[in-house]
Nucleic acid binder design. Structure first.
Lengths: 212, 212, 212, 212
DNA sequence: ACCGACGGGACTTCCCGTTGCT
DNA sequence: AGCAACGGGAAGTCCCGTCGGT
């Protein structure tokens, strides 16, 4: 047989990627190992060589896939803006409009989906979810702090608290959108987010800085 | 067994209640029919007499249990306040503090949990979730409209949009809290909500009306 | 409620008729009591008032429905012919061509179907099947005997043996046709039957008496 | 357990053989997977590894077991005779007398049983049954053709049609015998078959060539 | 005579994980 | 590093029959 060269790392990553897809579509409980094997073309032996159990795959998806996703989708892009409010708005817009890899509007935010499903079922998942949420919040926090220094954000804003709340808003909005699937809801979420972000502006500059 | 009397309606309700508990703990996919039978003391035949399938049970839980829950937890209590902002705040506080039947902070909002898990998996679920969300939003909407008329809310506020966003905030916060389980996050969510609600006050009266 | 007048006999017969349909379509093992109830609009209580068990329904179908069917389909029609060979041929042709109530070619002969399925599984069924087969054979036998007396059939023919074999041919042909569903097979069966029947003619008259 | 050696092919064959036995006794609908496991000593997982579903097992029994049975029981033995009429008679006698593996008289012909039960219920089964019947008929056909060339069979005989009819006779007789279980019926069937076969002899040689 | 809630159990499906092997 | 046979068990479906009622 002219088999593909054995590359353990790549095999592992293919399994994780397939597992992510399955989880994103059906939830962790709905994810089927057989389906992962079908998608990767690998066999059970290979999978159980790399992972000890189904739960272990789930943890790996969190640690090695979703973590990177958060990094690429939120943390890095946000860091490129001097004005945090502009940054968050632009990044959110980007995600909402991109018909890209992950359809946040139809299938929700992968992290949020897992947070809902697994937080109260498994402490290992909860910990990982919590850590990623903290990273996400921290990114907003640092951005807001820089914004403060540069005069884009009011000096009195509690950046940690605000960052946490922004994440809550984003999760809540994706949640609502996933269930409602209509334009009106999308608009309401966008307007609400904008309104909240604007309220973080310095008292004198308070004006809608981002009209779509 | 004490329960020898035949009361189909009560039996059905007991099944639905047990199913709700199971779903609230493990999600719909994680709900085990065997467990429902164990909790109710009924047998497969009885359950299958009342419901055609697992999915059918899920729908009944939405239609006959969670709908009432939304009514009792949100719609009726909110309607009793003249000031919507006070109303929403008080009701939220109540829910957060009550160690009551449903632990929103540890196990999340039942409707939100199902919205996350099932919206993209089953259209029948999505429809039901959407309908309940609309009821919930409508209750806020009507409350805000009365608030406008009574001067508690700014005349320029788009009440429908604001109501939708408030629901998004509430879902996002329960979602975050379920995963983080800490006091800091709770505070951040509360402050954020308060801040947003206050921004709906009439321009001249804009001051934090509800300090905890 | 303007309920239908209660007529136990009619109810019983409706149940039997529905049971026959179910058995004819799915076999006795494949017959579902729920389906009988659906077809008759009756409920379980009614059915189990008239019959002790599923098996009991099956027996009733044999005794009260299929017995009549054999009588109406074979015994009476055959008796009307003086020439048994003409009689059998005509009756067979009639059945094969009628798009009537029972589609012998697509769904087989009801008696034969049950004979195959149940003979070796339940002695009560086997007995009933055997009795009906004997009735059927007897009808041919009597017809052949009259044919002998009238010169339509060779004097040396063992009428009982021939009758039995004719039934075997008829069952075998319906069986083959049910599985093959094609015209060629139908023709082969018809030619074979004709050929055999003709061989029963008196030695001097031996010529194909029935050309289609 | 003795059987620790892993031999997938043998395991598969053991499953098919056990399934055949179950089907032969109770029909396909009456076949119990649990019973197959009990007979083979295997577990659900093993069975489900080899077959996708109950239907899949049924198909495998047709394709890999009954097909061979037809080959061994009819096709090969018939091919060894120069005189087809002698061949068919001898083979039939053999089967009827052998108290062998398959009791055609008590439990019927496996193929015929399935033809009756499944032809109108499942198209996949019908196709497979049809194919095997065609093979069987073809074997008779070729034998009769050789018989023609060698002068054992009348030149005017339509061999295909006759072969089909012979199969019909054989199926009809086993069907009758299964239900009647008596010697008289057996005799009648035998005489009838002999009579028909003899009618295929060349006009001049027409005499009962096989007296028992 | 008829209704329907329920008992009770069996059956197929289906999946996770282990283990011998290459 | 990867393969595939198999163990083992539980879930959901589905159905026959009983029994208290009207």
């Amino acid at each position: 047989m002219m088999n593909v060269v054995r590359d353990p790392d790549q095999t592992r990553n293919r399994l994780i990627a397939a597992a992510f897809d399955e989880i994103y579509e059906n939830g962790f409980q709905g994810m089927r190992i057989e389906e992962i094997l079908k998608r990767t073309g690998l066999k059970k032996g290979a999978l159980y060589h790399h992972f000890a159990s189904k739960l272990d795959i789930g943890y790996a998806v969190m640690d090695e896939f979703i973590a990177d996703m958060i990094e690429d989708t939120w943390i890095k892009p946000i860091a490129e803006y001097d004005d945090p409010i502009e940054g968050i708005s632009k990044v959110v817009l980007n995600i909402a409009q991109s018909d890209g890899e992950y359809d946040y509007i139809k299938k929700g935010c992968p992290l949020n989906n897992l947070a809902q499903e697994m937080s109260s079922l498994d402490e290992g998942f909860r910990q990982r979810i919590f850590n990623l949420l903290q990273l996400w919040i921290l990114a907003f926090d640092q951005s807001l702090q820089r914004g403060k220094e540069n005069g884009f954000v009011d000096k009195d804003v509690d950046t940690t608290s605000a960052s946490t709340f922004i994440v809550a808003i984003l999760e809540g909005c994706t949640s609502l959108l996933k269930a409602s699937q209509d334009e009106t809801t999308l608009q309401a979420c966008w307007i609400g987010l904008e309104s909240y972000l604007t309220s973080l502006r310095p008292a004198t500059v308070k004006s809608n800085s981002l009209t779509q």
